[in-house]
Design a protein around this nucleic acid. Structure first.
Lengths: 241, 241
DNA sequence: CGAGGGTTTGAAGTGCATCAAATAGTGTGG
DNA sequence: CCACACTATTTGATGCACTTCAAACCCTCG
């Protein structure tokens, strides 16, 4: 029961479940288990019968789909506090995407059945989930906008800006959360394009890049360059993808 | 009260509200009004304080956002039975996109306040909405995939295939639902590109195009050409955007 | 130190955008 | 019912952005 307690506490800190009452969290956590996976592990593939939904505890997890001719589209890349697999409830109990661990990760697995049961009677949960999915939809709408209207350097700039903590000090140093090849795919471009686009961005806005470490000297210049092709005004943090 | 009755009946036929009990529909419809607008009318713009959410009765309505440098991104183009504006509930009562009538339309306006009140106590409604928004998210995810992996001709082919009624007979004739310029924007391309891409599609799959009327001679050829770059297998109707 | 993956660079090709202009189609007033 | 005005659509020419293929480089880790 010690672990269940920890799981419950963790849920309370997530975006989706933070508003729920203690008893709801308890019921949800009852049959949950924490599992650790290492990089490369395939959790499930699209079409698999779904038994669980997951909450990410740590690490990074890639959600994606593959086409007939062998290409891949990235749905999302998740980290601590985000959930996935829950949508199988509405899709004849099958996952609609595949999921792979891209940085050693801990996840908590919850029986979908418990969630389903809880949905029937717990309006607070249903509502919290509605709010979460609605905000997810907004993010996806913006991603489409970005893909349509922003250039590759701008998409990178946009991604960087979202990594900047809201408490902006003078010179800002950030670290890319996962490798550049994956980030390129996440932003819908080739690794080569990413590399070249980052160079352009460097020249256009005076960034300093050293491996995965990026120093933003003049954030206003970056904002001006990036956000002119976007319908949201900076700071757009949660609004954007 | 006659109109309220009609509104209630209409709601019962929509995807979102079809599962609701009669009393729920009645409460929702109580203060609803039906309004007719003609082409070109701007219903609201992004950022406006929201008072209502809408259900489309007839016609076509464009949801979109504009960037600082004057470009436009289309969020969605809605027709009968679809809802919009309801997301303002979660966004500090402001609309997140603008909406414009692109073909003479009838809409039903519902006070957001009623919806909000109903959410508090009516779990069936909350759940129905959750299911709706979840499926909307899936569609948006696929749209991103399409934008990343499909060529312009393939995106058009994909759109056409979704217009084909599921009861496929021999030779199939379909009509584009709105003008080509708008459709181009909807698919994220320029009108010129649309025109040329449709020609390519014609050559590649043996379509016949005459104005807004398109005859599909060999649907398998169209499917093969189009769906090879997609992660969903035909028929993907509701799954895709 | 060497192997292997991640990252960058170079060269060439492709697809879509852009600008300009012609053509088709539609609704209007005469 | 026709001519005009206006918009939608197509076509042509050109440029740019991103992709592709190939190869070099770099970095980490056994």
């Amino acid at each position: 029961m010690l672990t269940q307690l920890k799981i419950k506490d963790f849920l309370r800190d997530t975006e989706v479940f933070s508003t729920l009452e203690d008893e709801s969290l308890e019921r949800l956590s009852k049959n949950a288990i924490e599992i650790n996976y290492s990089k490369g592990k395939l959790l499930f593939v699209a079409g698999d019968k779904a038994q669980h939904f997951y909450v990410v505890k740590s690490g990074w997890i890639k959600l994606y789909r593959e086409t007939l001719d062998g290409n891949m589209a990235i749905i999302d890349i998740l980290s601590s506090g985000q959930i996935f697999g829950e949508t199988a409830l509405f899709e004849s109990d099958s996952y609609t995407y595949s999921s792979e661990i891209v940085e050693d990760a801990g996840v908590i697995a919850f029986p979908l059945h418990d969630l389903q049961k809880e949905f029937r009677t717990n309006n607070a949960l249903t509502f919290a989930m509605l709010e979460y999915v609605t905000s997810y939809s907004r993010r996806k709408e913006r991603e489409i906008e970005h893909k349509t209207l922003q250039s590759a350097p701008q998409r990178i700039g946009c991604f960087l800006l979202r990594l900047v903590p809201s408490t902006t000090s003078g010179s800002i140093v950030i670290h890319l959360p996962y490798d550049k090849t994956l980030l390129a795919a996440r932003l819908g471009m080739q690794p080569e394009t990413f590399s070249r686009a980052l160079n352009k961005l460097k020249e256009a806005t005076g960034l300093h890049v050293k491996g995965a470490t990026i120093e933003i000297e003049n954030i206003d210049r970056l904002i001006k360059f990036t956000c002119s092709a976007c319908s949201s005004e900076y700071p757009c943090q949660d609004k954007c993808n």
